[in-house]
Each structure stands twice: as structure tokens, then as C-alpha cells.
Write a protein that binds this DNA or RNA. Sequence first.
DNA 1: ATGGGTACCTGTCTGC
DNA 2: TGCAGACAGGTACCCA
Length: 276
Amino acid sequence: MPELPEVEVTRRGIAASIEGALVHDVRLGKPLRWPLGAPSRALRGTVVGPVQRRGKYLWLPLRAGDQDRGGLLVHLGMSGSLAFEPRPGPPGVHDHFDLVTSVGTLRLTDPRRFGAVLWSPSLVQPPAARLLARLGVEPFDAAFGGMHLWQGFRRRRTAVKTALLAGDVVVGAGNIYASEALFRAGIDPRTPCARLSRARCERLADALRGTLAEAVEHGGSTLRDFRDAQGHSGSFQLQAKVYGREGEPCEICATPIRRLVQAQRSTYFCPHCQRR
DNA sequence: ATGGGTACCTGTCTGC
DNA sequence: TGCAGACAGGTACCCA
């Protein structure tokens, strides 16, 4: 599910409810990707600080009085969503983590359990630091632009779609938004990174930012699982120009959209509008 | 160093 | 109707 827009929509959705909440307890369901890494008694009595996002991770800082108590690093994996429930019902079969607080419960629902919640003493110490170390720049940072992409890509031979997914040059694009951004930029997803000119990197940087920003405005994409913190679906999938549209006519030129497989993932593109 | 394949897990849809 | 197989928004890890 969740690429940068879905994670950002989630962050905004939970922030107002959970910030300042007093943690009463933690409930764990079936195991997620990693163990929590802290006994629940260590979390009780802490207060949740401002929720941050880094790439597709969320960070919930915890304090007790003036003491820093680290925080929770949350990843939604492929099928996860977080909901804030003022009066939660009993957990369902796919509800694998509850943060029970004074004002309600933050609940992670994740059928495939590729998601994770883990405690870390800070973002710059393990285990969080280890997971964040390989992440590229944020697409909405001033440091990101065509120049950054060009420098990150110029010694790479892999296909540009695969490199966007890898997230070590720029974070945020997953399988949907990588295809969509490349369509907007008019770049064939199979193009080797090193072949992209400065000018095309500029176009790609703009396209990526534009696509992600628009997706956030639409509440993200809901293919099946994704829900925001209030349980609403996103609608960006209705704006998608190529993703999931194999065989349908391109909006620009009416050529049928094609699907191919790169690194075991589907890529969608217009063979006429997108050039190497 | 880079790049590819595999693994994790469950649900849904398609075609026979 | 049943069942096998493909596919689904991510990414850490192992190997060449």
C-alpha cells in the first residue's frame, strides 16, 4: 500500500489526536516484521510528541516529564494502515498493534504483516538509525531537484524505474508513483539512469514532486487496504494515468498502455509518450 | 559497490 | 464449485 503520500496522509490524520496523549499500555497481536524491542512497561506513562515522517516511516517521539524516552518507528509495509480510535472495539484478526492512551487507541491493521513497529532510543541510534541510514533525500526538501537526481543517477546502469523504487537517491516513490512520475516526465521506465540528461532529470524531479503532492491532496491511493486515520479511502488511484491501466488508451495519444515487469514488480507506461 | 533474486504473509481474482 | 496460480502499495538480506 503505502508510499510517501499515504504515509503523509496518515501522519496528518493521527497527529492532532495522538500528540500529547498519555500512553497507558501496548497490545501486540501476531508478530510483525520485527519485535517491538522494548517491554510495554517502558512505554507506560510516556507522552507522545510531534509525529514525524521520514521516507515511508513514521516516528512517534515519547517523553516522560523532561526525560527523553526514545520513540516508536512505524512502517506500514504493503498492507498496513493506522487508525486512531477514541473508543476502540476489540481487535480484529488483522489488528496487530495497539497503542492504548488516555484519549484513545492508535491501532495498526496489517493483513500481510510486512509492517513494523519498533522502539528506538532515538532516530540517530540503532535500531532506527540502521533502517533510515540508506534512505535518500526527501522529495520536498530544498536539497532535492534535477541536479540531485542527475548526480545520484549518473553512475548507475539500472533502469530508472528500479532506481526510483530503491529509494536511496530520493525517497517516497513506490510502485504506483514511480510509474506515474515517469509518465509525467515522458521518460521510458527502462532507460538506464546514466543516460538521463540534466534537463530530463529536472523534468523527472518536477514530475515526482508534482505527482506526490497531488496524491497527498487526494488522500493517497486506495487499491484495496489503505485507509487514513479516520478510516477513509484515498482517491488518487482515479487520477492515475498509467498505473493499473494496461491496454487502456493513453490520455495523451491513445496508444494502449503497456505493462512490463522490472525487478519482479509491474511497471506501466505509454510506449509512445515515454522515450528513452 | 552494484545489482539481482528471495523471503516475509494473507487476501483476491482469474482461468481451467 | 473447487482449486491452482498469479498478483498485490515494501524492503532487508544474501549472493554473484
